[in-house]
Amino acid sequence: MDIRRRAERTSETASSDYFTGDVTAERLFEAPDPARTAAVRVTFQPGARTAWHTHPLGQTLYIVEGTGLVQRECGDIETVGVGDVVMFAPGEKHWHGASRDSMMTHIAIHERKDGNHVEWLEKVSDDQYEGRG
C-alpha cells in the first residue's frame, strides 16, 4: 500500500508550450511498472485550454469544478460541468479547457505506452476556441 498525502503534493504552472492561459497541474499519482495509470488534477482559469493532443491509450476526464469545453478533431465543441466524465479514444486528437466565463478543474486519467502518455500537437487558436475555425 502507498498513501500519497495531500500535504506532500504541490501544484505547478503548466507549460506554455502545451497550454494557453493560466493553468495549474497537480500530479496525483503515477503508478509504478508494470501498472501504467497516472492521474493529474488540472485547473484552468477562464479561457485557458490545452493544445491539441492525443494519448496512445486514451484519456478520461472527470470534471470536479466549474464549466469546461472539450472538442475532438472534426467534432463540435461540447460544454461539460461538475460530475461529467469525458472519455477520449486512443489516438483521438482533442483539446479541453475552461469556458470563457468560468474556471474548470478536472482529474485527467491516462496510461503510459512505451513510456509515453501524450503527444502534444499545435495550439488551439482563438478562432478554434470560439468555434469559428
Rank of each mutant, 00 (worst) to 15 (best):
D76E: 15
R4M: 13
T67C: 01
G75V: 06
E30M: 14
T79D: 01
E12C: 11
R9W: 06
P90N: 06
R5N: 08
V40N: 11
V85S: 02
S16R: 12
Q71F: 01
S99W: 05
G83T: 07
V42M: 14
P90V: 13
T50D: 00
Q128C: 06
A31F: 07
T67K: 09
D33P: 13
S125I: 10
T60M: 14
K123Y: 00
A14L: 13
W120M: 04
G66W: 02
M1N: 10
G66R: 02
E26K: 15
E8R: 06
V118K: 04
R5Q: 14
S15T: 08
H110W: 09
L28R: 13
H96F: 02
T37L: 15
F44T: 03
I3G: 05
A38M: 12
A48R: 01
G58C: 09
P46N: 02
D33H: 13
A39P: 04
F29M: 10
D17N: 09
T10P: 01
E8V: 07
L28M: 14
I63S: 01
E65I: 10
K113S: 15
E65T: 05
R49P: 01
S102L: 10
A14S: 11
R36E: 11
G75N: 05
G81I: 06
D2S: 15
D76G: 07
